[in-house]
Write a protein that binds this DNA or RNA. Structure first.
Lengths: 223, 223
DNA sequence: GTCTATATATTGATAGAC
DNA sequence: GTCTATCAATATATAGAC
């Protein structure tokens, strides 16, 4: 169990590499992050680094896994040490707020996931599983909240989980092209829709209370 | 106005190239589509094709523009020749149904848009504008529907437009990893949430009517 | 485990003839 | 407008020494 000698050193070096890589990618993004650069940052040659991960793709999969690990500990309501019901929207909102601080990681995720779309891509399975796990965890959290009464029982947990993660991905895409997009605000609005805060009992009142333009909604003035 | 001689031929060739490219990409996706391949498909050499577009990026921007053009004519409720109010959800639903038939184009869009995230990328502006235009058009359609009474007046058109297009992008991401994801079904559910079909007046009924698992929701059985 | 050096492979871009 | 031929620019992957 307690790794000894050079084995422990290898583990430690791996850790160092992943942590450093996370920092670098968060800043400079995926496009400009080459294996060579990451190697340099931890005092290794390019083949020296690849020694630990085999290929570039494996390296980046590990970087993403590490990120998941860190984020999950911080933001996943579904996994936290249970005392009350989870808070899916709270967790997701802190997550997107955090992500807005690490644009490079958002880009890495976006680029890598779109590349790994191809079934032959080494990271394909990683993303497939990640989505499935996220949906399952999200749906479970929703059900718990429904039982606890913090979300309407009428909601379809499975469908809502799909919508939820679709929304996160999609908001990030728009945000990358326009940082004025307020992801947390949008999620809050989505949440409000779910709990029927403004929807009920006015379904066909034509044009009442219009002209209230929402804050932080850019890009409405184009052709 | 009426182009004559070799100029007309050039235009025609461009058309042919774009149409053929659309077909090919729809089938094989972006990753495996090289300029050389597209050239071959229209009986040109690689430099011969690039003669029309300059660079690979410009070529793909044009391919996407052409796609937009075709899709807009077919599916955009905001642009159709007005007789009644638009039907945003209807249009968007037919669009995602159509997209499910052309996986390669969905992949092209996804990959290219994640690459063009970088501000220096030649396609950056294209995507930025596209998002902005889509949001503006979506919001306008929503307002029209609100005035016509086909959507609740209480909805925030600007925010809803952001959510709408985020949802489309995000659903496609998930769909690319799991074709069991039913994008149209998810959109229908989202729409139902908006009109308060199942939400109102039961916000804190704890665990009533559970266990109704939704159809076509894969990936709920994982760790 | 780590390095140096090099192979390899794409594939987009360019020069210049026809 | 279109071709042939060639260049060039990356980076990743690998061989083999230490």
């Amino acid at each position: 169990m307690a790794p000894r000698g050079s084995y422990a050193k290898g583990i430690a070096k791996r850790e160092e590499i992943l942590n450093t890589a996370l920092d670098i990618v968060a800043r400079v993004g995926y496009s400009r992050t080459t294996v060579r650069e990451l190697a340099q940052a931890v005092g290794l040659s390019q083949p020296g680094l690849l020694h630990y991960f085999g290929t570039k793709e494996q390296l980046f999969i590990e970087i993403l896994r590490r990120r998941d690990q860190v984020d999950e500990a911080e933001y996943s309501p579904a996994t936290r040490t249970a005392d009350g019901p989870p808070d899916l929207f709270g967790g997701v909102t802190s997550l997107v707020d955090h992500n807005a601080q690490v644009p490079g990681l958002v880009q890495l995720y976006s680029r890598f996931s779109s590349e790994a779309t191809e079934e032959s891509h080494p990271a394909h399975e990683y993303f497939r599983d990640r989505y499935a796990t996220a949906r399952a965890g999200g749906a479970a959290a929703i059900r718990e909240q429904q039982e606890a009464g913090t979300l309407p029982a009428s909601l379809d947990a499975d469908r809502l989980a799909v919508l939820m993660f679709a929304l996160i991905d999609g908001l990030q895409s728009q945000w990358m092209y326009d940082s004025e997009i307020d992801m947390a605000d949008q999620l809050a609005y989505f949440r409000a829709l779910l709990t029927g805060e403004t929807t009920c009992a006015e379904t066909d009142l034509p044009s009442a209370g219009r002209g209230k333009s929402s804050p932080k909604m850019p890009g409405s003035g184009e052709s």
